[in-house]
């Protein structure tokens, strides 16, 4: 039984994903068409990008609730600049800087003042949303067509957002598995105190993951802007929960030290998006969407706690 449970949980994201594809594939043949599948990837890209940054944070046993707000602030600043006629080449770096600044703000309170990440980033969430509303004066703002290029430009008939997602996944995967920074993230997540005693500069590592998360959120904002073409007061709202759900569905532990962006977080993001997409293709009642999504998040959390239990019991056998 235990021999079966362990790999089953390990491959649960993949199995769930395949299950969802088959289910919606049976419901509607259009769902499995290549065009729709690419569509799912493109729609999942902004959540996926935020979730990459979130995975870094979760690996250290922290959490970043401010990512949706970072997206909003970055987009609001971009909208303001675009409306006043600035070029994309100025706006995009400014957006990244916004992500870095908010990330640095989080990092400062978490590492220097030792405030719990949950509280700090919850505060940043409200500050960020307030700031964004102030900048946009709570009005929706349309962006020039140049921005829509980010969403619609195609290379090898695949839209740019999917390429951005793929590129960031590759970079994040290499950082996490091949660099000292990445491996030390895992050490800090396993036991921060032990890592500190072993000589790991835990504060640098912690600060680093919140910066990564901030930058990822800013890039996700660019992609979202490219797809929507406008900033609304709801821009990026509740993205943090979709991102956490994607990472956890992909096998990243909320207690730190375990997880990966590829394939884990990618699968998680695709899974959430395919459910939404599938419901659309099925013409399901739109009121069902949030329920379906929350059912998925619930599944993710249950799986996470099951994984922990299995791990603990197998550790006890040693």
């Amino acid at each position: 039984m235990k021999r079966l449970t362990k790999p089953l949980l390990q491959f649960a994201p993949l199995l769930l994903f395949i299950g969802v594809l088959l289910f919606f594939g049976c419901q509607s043949p259009r769902f499995l068409e290549v065009r729709n599948l690419i569509n799912i990837i493109v729609q999942a890209s902004s959540t996926g990008i935020v979730a990459i940054g979130m995975t870094f944070v979760l690996l250290t046993a922290g959490v970043d609730l401010s990512v949706g707000a970072i997206m909003f602030v970055a987009a609001a600043v971009a909208g303001k600049l675009a409306v006043s006629g600035r070029s994309m080449f100025l706006i995009l770096p400014v957006m990244v800087s916004v992500g870095l600044c908010v990330g640095a703000f989080n990092a400062f309170f978490i590492t220097r003042l030792r405030v719990v990440a949950f509280i700090v980033t919850l505060a940043t969430l409200f500050i960020g949303r307030g700031l964004g509303l102030r900048i946009t004066e709570t009005r929706a703002m349309n962006l020039p067509d140049s921005f829509l290029m980010i969403g619609s430009f195609r290379w090898l008939s695949v839209p740019l957002p999917a390429w951005i997602l793929a590129g960031l996944l590759l970079i994040a995967h290499l950082i996490l598995t091949r660099t000292p920074f990445g491996r030390q993230i895992f050490a800090v997540g396993a036991d921060a105190e032990m890592a500190r005693k072993a000589g790991v500069r835990t504060k640098t590592i912690l600060a680093g993951v919140y910066l990564v998360s901030g930058v990822c959120a800013a890039i996700a904002a660019m992609v979202s802007l490219g797809q929507l073409g406008a900033v609304s007061p709801k821009f990026g709202e509740q993205k943090e929960f979709a991102a956490i759900a994607a990472a956890v569905l992909g096998g990243t532990s909320l207690f730190g030290g375990r997880g990966n962006v590829f394939p884990g977080t990618l699968l998680g993001a695709l899974l959430i998006q395919s459910i939404e997409n599938g419901l659309v293709v099925m013409n399901a009642n739109p009121y069902i969407y949030p329920m379906a999504t929350s059912a998925v998040i619930f599944t993710a959390v249950v799986m996470e706690s099951l994984r922990n239990r299995v791990r603990r019991s197998s550790a006890a056998v040693l």
């Binding site: 000292p180 072993a198 000589g199 375990r258």
Partner: peptide, 29 residues
């Protein structure tokens, strides 16, 4: 014990002094 269970033996041994090939950001595995 003071080992990180989620890392490999080699990573545990070199955690704070990973060697890198010159000019590369990656650990010289």
């Amino acid at each position: 014990l003071n080992l990180f269970p989620n890392l490999t033996i080699a990573e545990n041994l070199f955690l704070t002094r990973f060697p890198r090939a010159t000019g590369s950001p990656f650990i010289d595995r």
